[in-house]
Design a binder for these strands. Structure first.
Length: 503
RNA sequence: GCCCCCAUAGUCUAGCGGCCCAGGACGUCACCCUUUCAAGGUGAAGAUCGCGGGUUCGAAUCCCGCUGGGGGUACCA
C-alpha cells in the first residue's frame, strides 16, 4: 500500500484565512489520522507557492507558520523543517518547471507564444463584444519552427502555452464528486510558463506534486475549472495522476467568499479575538464534515480517530459566528481546566492593563487571583477578550464609577437601599467572608430583621461589591473579593447613595 | 455570455429506496432551577427535504429539466 502524502500550498500574499486553516486541518487529519488507521504512514507537506513576485507580501510565510502552530497543526516537511523533497519554496525550484516546459515543447504538448499582453487584451475584448467566450485565439499555436526561431533570435519575449486537444473530452476524477467531464474544445491553451521564467500555478503545482510524490491533491473548489489542464499535464508528462479532492468553500453569511469585511476571517483576528484554537478547530471541523450528525464536540485527538475524507461534504458551508462563539464558550466552560483558563486569560488581562505586566504563566504575581476569578467566571466567559471586563472587580482595588441607581433593588427606594447597606456595614466586620455558608446565613437573617426579601438585600450588596448588577453567586464573589475591599466598597456605596440627595 | 460545482429549518448537518408526514446542534421562544447574570435541565416553534417531470409497489434518497446560490473565465493563486 502506498504512503499517503498531502500538501498545503499557500501563496504568501496575505494573512491565513480560516478557509485555509480548515484545509490544513483536513490535510493533517487525513495524513495523520485516516492514513494511519488504514495502515499507511501519512505525511503532511507545507509548500510555499510564491511564483507571482508581484503579489508577494513580506512576512506572510512566518506569520502563516506561527498561526498554524498556534492552532496546533504541524507539518512533516516544509520550508523550515526541510525534508527529502526540498526545497519547499517554489521560487527556489524554477529549473524544475523550465525543464518540464522544455520537455512539453519538445513533445509537441506545448508551444511558445509571442503575443503581447496588449494583443491578448484586444482579442479578449473583441470576442466579448461579439458575444463570444473571451479567451486566447491560439494565434501562436501553429507557428512553424522557423518562425519561432526567428522570433527567438530577435529576442522577442514569450510565454509557453499548453496545447490543449481540440476534440474529445477530459475527465477530472474527484474524490468527493465523482467524474467531472469537460469538452476539450471549450478548454483554453493556458499559459504554463510566464515570460519572466516563472511558472504559473498550473505547471508548478503539477511538477511539485509529482516530485514531492503527493498522492492526494486537496485544495479549494476554485481549482475545479482548471483541473482538466492539470490532468492533461500529468498525461503529457507521462506521470501518474494523484487523487483529486476539491474541498467545499466557506461562505460568508451574506453569500460569497468570506473576507475581512465579515468580522474577521484571518487566523490572527480569531486569535486576538479571544478564541481558543481548540474551539476554532472543533468548529471548523464541523463546517463540511460530520461523524454522525449527532456528535458536536471533538478534540484534535478524537478527530484524528474518526475523520475520513469520504465524509467530507461537497457542498459549501456558511460561516456562523454564533455557533463558533457557543463552541468557544463550551470549551472554556466544560473542557478547559480552571488552571488552563487562567493561563490563557493572562495575556488578555496584561494587554488590557487589568493586571500588571509580567510573564503570561503561573509565575505571574497575580496568577492566584486570576485563577480564583477564572474559577468563578468560567461558565460565563464566551471570548477570552471578555476577561478583562468580567474579572476587573476581582483583580483591581478600585471600582470604576457606577450609577448609584443600580444600588436600589427592585420594588424599593433609595432609603431602603441605604438602610440595607448601613445594616450590612454594621455587621460585615463580624462576618467571616471566607466562610460562604456562614456569610449567607448571616445575611439571610439580616434580610429578615430588615423586613426585606433576600434578593432585595443581596442586590445592593452585589452592586456595592462589584459595581454592577451581574456577577457570579454573591457569597463566592464576596469571598473572592476579600474582607477589606468588601468593607470599603460598602462604605463607598453608602456615600454614593447619600450623595444622590434622595435619602 | 460561456464552462463548472452545489441544493434537507435562519445557520451547520444526519439521511446513501421502505426504520423519516425527516434526527442532532447553533440561534429563537417558554418553563424549571435561582440572590442577579450566566451555566444547567425540560419543552416549543421552525423544513410541503428549492420547483417540475420521470423511474419504482414505494424517493429527501436514482434520472432529466428548470430555478436559485456559488466558483471559474489573467503572463493571480
Amino acid at each position: 500500500m502506498q504512503e499517503v502524502r498531502v500538501r498545503f500550498a499557500p501563496s504568501p500574499t496575505g494573512s491565513l484565512h480560516i478557509g485555509g486553516a480548515k484545509l490544513v486541518m483536513y490535510d493533517v487529519l487525513f495524513a495523520h489520522g485516516q492514513a494511519r488507521r488504514e495502515g499507511k504512514r501519512g505525511t503532511f507537506v507545507l509548500r510555499i507557492e510564491d511564483t507571482d513576485q508581484k503579489r508577494f507580501v513580506e512576512g506572510t510565510v512566518e506569520n502563516l507558520m506561527s498561526e498554524l502552530r498556534w492552532l496546533g497543526l504541524e507539518w512533516d516537511e516544509g520550508p523550515d523543517v526541510g525534508g527529502p523533497c526540498g526545497p519547499y519554496v517554489q521560487s527556489e525550484r524554477t529549473h524544475h518547471y523550465k525543464e518540464a516546459a522544455e520537455q512539453l515543447i519538445a513533445s509537441g504538448h506545448a508551444y511558445r507564444c509571442f503575443c503581447s499582453p496588449e494583443r491578448l487584451k484586444a482579442v479578449r475584448e473583441d470576442l466579448q463584444k461579439r458575444g463570444l467566450p473571451p479567451g486566447y485565439d491560439r494565434h501562436c499555436r501553429n507557428l512553424s519552427p522557423d518562425q519561432v526561431q526567428a522570433k527567438l533570435d530577435a529576442g522577442e519575449s514569450h510565454v509557453v502555452r499548453f496545447r490543449m486537444p481540440r476534440e474529445g473530452e477530459t475527465i477530472v476524477p474527484d474524490l468527493l464528486r465523482g467524474d467531472i467531464t469537460y469538452e476539450n474544445e471549450k478548454l483554453e491553451d493556458l499559459v504554463i510558463l510566464k515570460s519572466d521564467g516563472f511558472p504559473t500555478y498550473h505547471l508548478a503545482v503539477v511538477v511539485d506534486d509529482h516530485e514531492m510524490q503527493i498522492t492526494h491533491v486537496t485544495r479549494g473548489p476554485e481549482w475545479i475549472p482548471t483541473a482538466p489542464l492539470h490532468v492533461r499535464l500529468y498525461d503529457a508528462l507521462g506521470w501518474e495522476m494523484p487523487i483529486f479532492a476539491h474541498m467545499p468553500l466557506i461562505l460568508a453569511p451574506t453569500g460569497g467568499k468570506l473576507s475581512k469585511r465579515h468580522g474577521g476571517a484571518s487566523l490572527t483576528e480569531f486569535r486576538e479575538g479571544g478564541y481558543l484554537p481548540e474551539a476554532l478547530l472543533n468548529y471548523l471541523a464541523l463546517l463540511g464534515w460530520s461523524l454522525d450528525g449527532e456528535t458536536e464536540i471533538f478534540t484534535m485527538d478524537t478527530l484524528l480517530e474518526h475523520f475520513t475524507l469520504e465524509r467530507v461534504s461537497s457542498s459549501p458551508a456558511t460561516f456562523d459566528r454564533d455557533k463558533l462563539d457557543w463552541m468557544n464558550q463550551y470549551w472554556i466552560n466544560h473542557l478547559l481546566t480552571v488552571d488552563d483558563l487562567a493561563t490563557r486569560c493572562l495575556p488578555f488581562l496584561i494587554d488590557a492593563g487589568t493586571i500588571e505586566d509580567g510573564p503570561a504563566d503561573a509565575t505571574h504575581p497575580r496568577y492566584d487571583d486570576v485563577e480564583t476569578a477564572s474559577a468563578l467566571l468560567k461558565d460565563r466567559v464566551r471570548l477570552l477578550t471578555e476577561a478583562p471586563d468580567l474579572m476587573s472587580y476581582f483583580l483591581q482595588d478600585t471600582l470604576p464609577d457606577y450609577d448609584a441607581a443600580l444600588l436600589i433593588p427592585k420594588k424599593a427606594d433609595a432609603a431602603t437601599a441605604l438602610r440595607a447597606l448601613e445594616a450590612v456595614a454594621s455587621v460585615v466586620s463580624d462576618v467571616d467572608l471566607a466562610d460562604e455558608e456562614a456569610t449567607e446565613a448571616r445575611f439571610r437573617a439580616l434580610a429578615d430583621e430588615l423586613g426585606l426579601k433576600a434578593g432585595q438585600l443581596f442586590m445592593p450588596i452585589r452592586v456595592a461589591a462589584t459595581g454592577r448588577t451581574q456577577s457570579p453567586g454573591l457569597f463566592e464573589t464576596l469571598r473572592a473579593i476579600g474582607q477589606d475591599r468588601v468593607e470599603s466598597r460598602v462604605a463607598q456605596a453608602i456615600d454614593k447613595l447619600k450623595a444622590t440627595n434622595q435619602v
